[in-house]
Amino acid sequence: MIHSYSKKAYPWDNACIESFHALLKREWINRFKIFNYTHAYKLIFEYIETFYNTVRIHSHCGYLSPTQYEEEYLKNLEANAIERAS
């Protein structure tokens, strides 16, 4: 494995995280005045744990929130297990 970096101001090498950072700023960070690193850390943690990973819909989850997607997935597993047992 070779560790490499792209040149400065060239975000296309890591488009996924660049997109996430833009989303984080647009949906959350720009609403607050950040006082220090600890405050920023807490705000980002709160966004990821209480909204992004639980409530916010994601296209890769069929436009469901991750929590809804997981519930649907578990329901399908249970239904398949019941069908196989019958």
Results as ranks from 00 to 15, higher is better:
residue 65 S to W: 00
residue 28 W to Y: 14
residue 39 H to E: 01
residue 68 Q to T: 03
residue 53 N to A: 07
residue 44 I to N: 00
residue 80 N to I: 05
residue 59 S to T: 06
residue 69 Y to F: 15
residue 66 P to R: 00
residue 26 R to I: 11
residue 26 R to F: 10
residue 43 L to T: 05
residue 15 A to Q: 05
residue 41 Y to R: 14
residue 31 R to V: 09
residue 29 I to L: 14
residue 70 E to C: 03
residue 33 K to M: 06
residue 43 L to V: 13
residue 24 L to T: 01
residue 41 Y to C: 13
residue 82 I to D: 07
residue 12 W to A: 04
residue 48 I to L: 13
residue 63 Y to V: 04
residue 82 I to R: 05
residue 50 T to C: 07
residue 13 D to L: 08
residue 69 Y to A: 07
residue 71 E to F: 04
residue 4 S to N: 15
residue 75 K to C: 06
residue 69 Y to T: 04
residue 12 W to F: 07
residue 85 A to Q: 05
residue 52 Y to L: 02
residue 61 C to T: 02
residue 52 Y to T: 00
residue 57 I to P: 01
residue 2 I to K: 12
residue 9 A to Y: 15
residue 14 N to W: 07
residue 33 K to G: 03
residue 42 K to W: 09
residue 71 E to I: 15
residue 60 H to S: 06
residue 76 N to S: 12
residue 20 F to P: 03
residue 60 H to P: 02
residue 80 N to C: 08
residue 81 A to D: 11
residue 31 R to S: 03
residue 46 E to Y: 13
residue 49 E to N: 10
residue 43 L to F: 01
residue 56 R to T: 01
residue 40 A to F: 11
residue 43 L to W: 00
residue 32 F to A: 04
residue 86 S to T: 11
residue 16 C to F: 13
residue 76 N to E: 09
residue 35 F to H: 12
residue 67 T to D: 02
